[in-house]
Amino acid sequence: MHIPDGYLGPTTCGFFYAVMLPIWAVASKIVKKTLKAKQVPMLAIGAAFSFVIMMFNVPIIGGSTGHAVGGVLVAILLGPWAACIAITVALVIQALLFGDGGITAFGANCFNLAFILPFVGYYIYQALTYRAPAISNRRVLAAGIAGYVGINIAALFTGVEFGLQPLLHHTAAGQALYCPYGLNVSVPAMAGEHLLIFGWVEAIVTALVIKFLQKQDTNGFPPKTCGNDTVGLNAETTNGRSL
């Protein structure tokens, strides 16, 4: 879902940089205000964690594999604003050092993966786990649903961004200057592969990791990381434990 350079026109690239600037500013302000000095490394760990999650190939039915983005998982673990910073940092490293995701399309990539994905997923998870005990299957199911919906909404936005290019940038003869496919092709293509394959990968990984974390709560996780007084800014606390 990382958009490379050359797929989006200058208007779209500029627009998403303009949209992301205030989001980054707010995220930076909120996280700096609520983050204790002791938890500063946690943010970097979260960024490295979200980078590394994308390297795990998950086996899917039919002998194939796919990889999760982990945006919703990071949002559940760190809170949505901290996740926004962590995923942005992971995307910077991917774009600059790995060439995965463009530099001119960086604003659009951050909008889809560091804003839409964690925020949609996080609030769906919060809504579905309202008053649910920390160790409950509802949280596992909610994490899976949040991962599935989050990645699909992000994919829908990506499809729309691709599909708008022939409308926004073309010559008089109808020649496309950037992504050559319109909304009728790009949206079904992006939505289809995520609804059928990658959405399930994201759902399985998010749900199973939350399930394992519930089981192996060895170092006090999740309460200390996700409590309101730490990196996770809006996590709900239940019986002294939050998730």
Binding site: V205, L213, N219, F221
Partner: peptide
């Protein structure tokens, strides 16, 4: 895979 990601998170924490 999920168990590995969980274990990675716990080590990171």
């Amino acid at each position: 895979v999920a168990s590995n990601i969980t274990s990675l998170w716990q080590r990171s924490y």
